[in-house]
Amino acid sequence: MSVIDKKDAFTSPIKKTAMRIFWGNLRKEDRDGTDNDKIKFLKKFPFFQSLNKRQLTEVSHLVYERQYQENETLFTFGQPGAALFFIQSGEVSVEITSEDGEVHQLAQLSKYSFVGELALLDESPRSATARAITPSVVFAFFKSDLDKLLETDPLIAAQVYKSLATIVGARLKATNELIEKKQKAAA
């Protein structure tokens, strides 16, 4: 066999498949499986949309996957907030309990929603309770990890803070408009 033949044989698809069968995708399997799914999922959120693949991989090492059963709480009103939760599957209800014990649902969140984003800014108490209505899978992203990112990879942290500011700003605008509307109605 000539040298050229050898080279051809090496790059031929059959040979590649043979190699893959022999090595059993030792390295690739892990990456292509859970890691890639996680990265794809995270990219759906405004916090990470402008990150490149390396940065997304970095973030994917920081988020914690949790599984909640029906009626289990993600966090409770009044507790110190430490993490932001991304919902991967299931339904989560955000609710507050009034003084007379009545529960008011503020929102019902499903896949690709997030809850508890204010915990990334400070450790002030949670302003509502988040409860899984159906069995849910969520990813938790902690303030302490974001703080560490600020030192080790400031570009990622800057992107997260930027989108956080945008979200809070948009909400402020909406609240102002609501107040304005109510004032007009009262007048």
Binding site: R66, E72, T73, L74, F75, A140, S144
Partner: peptide, 9 residues
């Protein structure tokens, strides 16, 4: 789950 956030904190 109940102690998750607490433990991390």
């Amino acid at each position: 789950n109940r102690y998750f956030e607490l433990t991390m904190n």
